[in-house]
Design a protein around this nucleic acid. Structure first.
Lengths: 352, 352
DNA sequence: CGGAACTTCGTGCACGTGCACGACAAATTT
DNA sequence: AAATTTGTCGTGCACGTGCACGAAGTTCCG
């Protein structure tokens, strides 16, 4: 066949299609102003010889700089969304991304009015593309409708709005990470009941975390249908309250040795256990927050189920740039990260 | 300060240093033919304004194609080294690596004479750089000496020859992966003895696999010093023999429920258990061979400790290209991959 | 002192693509 | 029929760097 190592250029395509390179470029970038006839011939030649644009020449020549807006929840230091922010920093400083400006808009995690305001700002600044981590499905759907209307492509991270016309989604497989958590929790020690700790949420029913809980439940009913599950609610920033309710919990269920929480704050449990000097528990949590890692290293947290969260946004931004530059949609629309199992013994190797 | 978003070009540097861009280029690429005075001034300006060469313009202009030779063990389909080969394919087809040609030289895994022959061929073809997976330390050290003498940079994968002047190393942390394997093996089920299966090797004492075994032993003596360990040798391609010795093994140690093997052929054990209809074992192995994955999916293998082996070579090649193009040594010399824990529940997400 | 050899440096083209500009013909309007 | 608009397309410069080529200056040697 064609020698596959031959690097075809846009000039070759033009020659073979019998037109000028300008027209080929118009076809490749869908810039219009091309007759159907020419368009067909060009695509044919491209297909046949397997022409791929030289990204180096392309980036060099392109004076265009893409503006991408990221709409994500506000966070305090050490919270989950800080990991996401890190991915943005990475995209910013990535040497491959010249002519790319990433702007971050934050909204309050439990305040849909705040989301609406931030979303309005995004629309106002007319970015070339958007990265969205949605918290309020209905409001977010409305927002994505506006984006679609304005022809602004967007990727979703963390939470997938199935009904919206997103270009791609990047996130953890929540259901299966819950399932995996259950499998680890019951591997060895079983039958005596498990404690599930949840964060009191102001509202929000169908959040990603609940999908994790459903995966957990599925494993339970498939493998250990008779094991009792005791749920306990705690608060993100109220140590006194948490001490009180956990004291009560462990007094009430002294036989429980297996603990899990589906949100990213397992460190709250770990720190409680440490304060009280409680040992011999199997404690499983999610996400690589620094305080979680610390609990893992100390052995208070047994397993941490996580992923490289940075990569969610990073890959999202990459997909957008790819799309903006080459009108090329990502190969896979729903991109699930791997479900990494971290222990005190392998955690060190998950940092670069 | 300087506006950090300003993109300085080689022309700016030339202007500020009061010389031409040709000279700046000579300084940047250490091509010599530059007076000490000019050199100093150029470096000063570069440092001060933070000039970074535009990699796109650079790659575009560079007509040079780098030839990289990979010296790795020969393999049959489904063996560990096939995963490495896949990384090479990936580097080859990676769109970012224009002007890069990767050639693979294979040697027989247990035949040092064959290694010597292949190594000689590598030297003969005078590549720009080399990727080496060494099996025979002494012979390999001699070879790397030759490479150093010929000023050919090389990276090591899989096995690290500490005494050789390698540019970088990419591999799994073997000792800790053994340690982690032990932790998983004893998590829950303990005390009744473990079976360790090893491949009969023609020779080779200090191979990577043995480092894994040492990590395993370390965990054992730290946490379960009294647990008996029974070692059993099997053969890679002799099912009849393996059946016989494993039958004997399980007859002799009926109480053993924990099994592990440190090489990449846990599927041999899994397939045996399946053939005999044996269940209720905790079986742990290493590396993502297809047959291992199959055993994991069936639930015969409990945990598979692995990493994305492809990335070892891929990253190795990248480091070499980086070095050849910009004389830039990798940030970290010893690059350890993460120790991923795979189960039947999360394995699907480890493929792209 | 003349010329050769060496050192240092500047000039200019090439790399493949993006895109502005304008040419030209066909279609439409005046 | 002339003028204008519309639809297609080709031309040519710019992007920042690598490197060949040769110019200019310096040193060396007989």
């Amino acid at each position: 066949m064609d020698q596959q190592n031959k690097k075809w250029t846009i000039k070759d395509v033009a020659r073979l299609a019998g037109i000028s390179k300008g027209t080929v470029d118009r076809v490749v970038h869908n810039r219009g102003e091309v007759s159907e006839e020419s368009r067909r011939r060009v695509l044919e030649v491209i297909e046949q010889i397997g022409y791929k644009p030289n990204i180096y020449a392309s980036k060099l020549a392109s004076r265009r700089t893409y503006r991408i807006a990221c709409l994500i929840p506000e966070y305090r230091p050490g919270e989950f969304w800080e990991l996401v922010q890190r991915g943005i920093e990475r995209a910013r400083s990535d040497e491959n991304h010249y002519n790319l400006s990433v702007e971050v808009l934050l909204y309050e995690q439990y305040d849909s009015a705040s989301f609406r305001r931030a979303a309005a700002k995004v629309l106002e600044m007319e970015p070339d593309a958007v990265v969205l981590a949605p918290m309020f499905p209905e409001t977010a759907i409305e927002f994505t409708g506006r984006l679609a209307q304005a022809d602004i492509p967007f990727v979703l991270i963390d939470s997938r709005l199935e009904e919206s016309p997103y270009l791609a989604y990047f996130g953890m497989p929540m259901y299966h990470s819950g399932y995996q958590g259950a499998a680890l929790l019951f591997d060895g020690d079983q039958g005596r009941g498990v404690g599930v700790f949840s964060i009191e949420h102001p509202d929000r029913r169908d959040n990603p975390t609940s999908r994790r809980a459903r995966g957990f439940q599925a494993y339970l009913s498939e493998h250990h249908p008779d094991t009792p599950v005791y749920e306990q609610f705690i608060r993100p920033h109220d140590t006194k309250y948490n001490n009180k309710v956990m004291d009560a919990f462990f007094a009430l269920h002294p036989e429980v040795r297996s603990l899990i929480t589906f949100n990213s704050r397992v460190h709250l449990i770990a720190e409680y256990l440490e304060r009280r000097g409680l040992e011999g528990y199997r404690l499983i949590g999610y996400d690589m927050l620094e305080r979680n890692i610390a609990a893992l290293r100390k052995g208070v947290c047994t397993y941490l189920i996580a992923n490289i969260t940075e990569m969610q946004v990073f890959n999202g931004i990459r997909a957008l740039v790819e799309y903006l530059a080459f009108h090329k949609a990502p190969a896979v629309r729903d991109n699930y990260s791997s479900i990494d199992i971290l222990t005190r013994y392998n955690v060190d190797y998950y940092f670069k």
